[in-house]
Computed example of a mutant assay.
Amino acid sequence: MTMKKNNEELAYEKVKRAIMLKKLHPGQRVTEEWVSNELQMSRTPIRSAFKRLENEGLIKLVPNKGAVVYNPSNKELDDVFQLRIVLEKYAAQLAVASMSQADVVYMERLLEEEVEAYQAKDFEAFMRVNGYIHVYPAEISGNNFLLEEIKKLNQWSDGYLILKDEFYTVPFEEVKSIPEHNRIVDAFRKKDAEEMCAAINAHLLSTLKDLSERHSIFQ
């Protein structure tokens, strides 16, 4: 049982990493046979790994064809980000009313970690920190239902970032998310709910615009 679990995890990590590094791009077919040959393992753990990747929005399993790297439509991107705007602005309003100085310190530390991740070109670290920045207001909002919904939407958004974000090719000085996140945290620091909502709105619309306009570097 342990070996099977290890093989599933290995297959999952290898395919996900290939997508993150743009070695596999949206619309490209990924077969169990190819992964099996590449990793020298049976197809059973690969099938399980594919299901995990599908749940994360990174691949789509097509009957009789296998897996295809997912290529979200602009409408899907718009639907997810518009809903994120509504929920994250509401979370911000609740968070500002109950925040502590320790919460501010935590958010400031996340900003530092984001800069470190960009400078190190560590996409996985960036994804993790980016998620914390967007979810944390909901964590301290006191509304667990809101928190779970924002987590779900962020998981889908993570998939879009992995599929479409040009993390490895955008120079540090041209990165938009860092100053946009700084604006959000600065409003949080000042307990300015209106400005925090405006900053969240501007940031998510900016990200949506970029993701909608980008295409794979292989196309």
Rank of each mutant, 00 (worst) to 15 (best):
T2E: 14
K4A: 14
K5C: 09
N7W: 08
E9G: 03
L10V: 13
V15F: 06
L21R: 10
L21C: 03
K23A: 03
K23D: 09
H25P: 00
P26D: 11
P26E: 09
G27K: 15
T31G: 06
E32P: 00
E32G: 10
E33M: 07
E38P: 01
M41I: 14
S42L: 14
S42K: 12
L53G: 10
L53E: 10
E56G: 03
L58S: 09
K60S: 15
N64E: 09
G66K: 05
V69G: 04
N71L: 02
K75G: 04
K75P: 00
E76S: 14
V80N: 06
F81W: 01
F81P: 00
Q82G: 00
I85D: 02
A91H: 00
L94S: 04
A95N: 02
V96K: 01
V96G: 01
S100F: 08
Q101H: 07
V104C: 00
V105R: 03
V105A: 06
E112R: 09
E114P: 00
E116C: 00
Q119L: 15
K121E: 10
F123A: 04
A125E: 06
F126E: 06
M127D: 04
G131M: 05
I133S: 01
H134D: 09
V135P: 00
I140C: 05
L146H: 06
L147F: 13
E148G: 15
E148Y: 14
E149V: 06
D158F: 02
I162P: 00
D165S: 10
F167R: 05
T169N: 06
V170S: 11
V170W: 09
V175H: 03
I178M: 02
H181A: 05
R183D: 08
R183T: 06
V185K: 05
V185N: 06
D186M: 12
D186S: 15
F188Y: 14
D192W: 11
D192E: 12
I200P: 01
N201A: 11
H203V: 12
S206Y: 11
T207E: 15
L208V: 13
S216C: 08
F218L: 14
